[in-house]
Design a protein around this nucleic acid. Structure first.
Lengths: 233, 233
DNA sequence: AAAGTCAATATTGTAGACAATCATGAAATG
DNA sequence: CATTTCATGATTGTCTACAATATTGACTTT
């Protein structure tokens, strides 16, 4: 070999630190609003403050962390308004992704997508196996993002947006009947239109699907808040 | 005052460095594909490598820079395919922004928007004052992003996407007749629908507007490439 | 006792030094 | 002469130390 260029870039401490921080946030060990003390965190993660600070800058770019100069970094706290705005953004982006997926996905990819949708359906009808549901649902949407062949939309959705939405759900919503039978039906409608290469229809169905799950999510949050308010009396 | 919290956060060196790097890229001093040697750049900008590296991480998040571990950082080089994908993303996001702007903008904001559109029109009809055109056109789109009241879409458009597109235009497209009379007409149609609070129509017009300018841009690029190819013979 | 002041402490921001990795080019080998 | 090897230099990655700023709690003052 004349070139010693590695196939995949070597990982560097900052990358690991980004992943570890993300894991801490997504597992709930670091909660929204929590402060991230650099010295202590660096010791915990076994790195120095340099790479840690770079990792923090990266996650700031993904909007998972917020910094106030000289006052520290905190995990972002999403308001209900933020959630609504994020879901509007998601509707636009996934709508376009789905349109492009209808034009670009291979038959093989469409079969895999159908498979994922069916597995979600099975989980719903068989009982309260809600543990893996969220992951499978995300898989469904990620497959479409990949199928769009639009790396810019894909990265935005997969690397940034899904994390933020998951962060909100993790702390604010009980996932119980959040994803229901309607979801499964909508999934198949989306797949049908992708399969038919109907790009207008595919975009439309995806947008409706996201609007519906947005309504379900907001209803759930409002219900919970009502319960919480009643309990405080 | 019991709280000494400042109204606006104090700027730190990293923030200045981000701005300076962005300026170097947008002014063309740093061109796509150029390497950024840390030591030398740090000396030029008058900062140490720490803040510089953090600034680089921030701009990596905005996709203006790309890093290969142990091999350095380069200014992103957008292919024609990238441009097409970015414009599809823009169509989706600005479409949604325009929809929300139709629901949320104040009468005052709409008047300002009309004013901007008229000034663009004047510049076009009066002659080759193309210098400020790009800025004014960006203003038009930014006002709508702000008017959407959707901070997530707004930040994505204003902080990330417009820079990337401008970077491409800066190096790959002669701006001459890129923005034409059609543009002005389309601007007014968009404003009319916002003013009528017709959210569906507003989204539609904006998406068409972006698709049209995408076609104009791609045609321009192809024309230039044809000329360049002919010249190489 | 409430509010303001100021020093002590902790945390963030920056700089410079050291270690690890990669690129370069000259010398050795077939 | 082409190719490989290896040492040299340059660049990136990481760590430690220092400076600047914010938070705290005790103390004074009204």
């Amino acid at each position: 070999m004349n070139s010693s260029k590695p196939f995949f870039s070597p990982r560097v401490m900052t990358d690991d630190t980004v992943a570890q921080l993300e894991a801490l946030i997504m597992s709930g060990e670091l909660r929204p609003g929590d402060r991230l003390p650099e010295q202590q965190l660096a010791a915990t993660l076994g790195v120095s403050r340099g790479p840690l600070r770079e990792a923090i800058r990266t996650l700031e770019g993904r909007r998972l962390l917020e910094r106030t100069p000289h006052a520290g970094v905190r995990v972002v706290q999403l308001s209900l308004e933020d959630l609504e705005q994020l879901l509007a953004m998601r509707e636009a982006l996934e709508g376009m992704a789905c349109r492009q997926a209808a034009e670009q996905m291979t038959a093989h990819e469409i079969r895999n997508l159908r498979d994922t949708a069916t597995r979600i359906e099975t989980l719903i009808t068989e009982g309260p196996q809600f543990l893996f549901m969220g992951q499978l649902d995300t898989d469904f949407h990620m497959q479409i993002a990949v199928g769009s062949r639009n790396q810019w939309i894909r990265r935005l959705l997969c690397e940034d947006l899904y994390s933020l939405l998951r962060l909100y759900r993790l702390h604010a919503v009980r996932q119980s009947d959040n994803i229901a039978l309607v979801t499964a039906k909508e999934h198949h409608e989306i797949i049908d239109r992708i399969h038919a290469r109907d790009s207008d229809g595919a975009e439309q169905s995806m947008r409706e699907h996201i609007r519906h799950s947005r309504e379900r999510l907001l209803a759930q949050v409002r219900k919970q808040e009502a319960v919480a308010t009643a309990a405080r009396k």
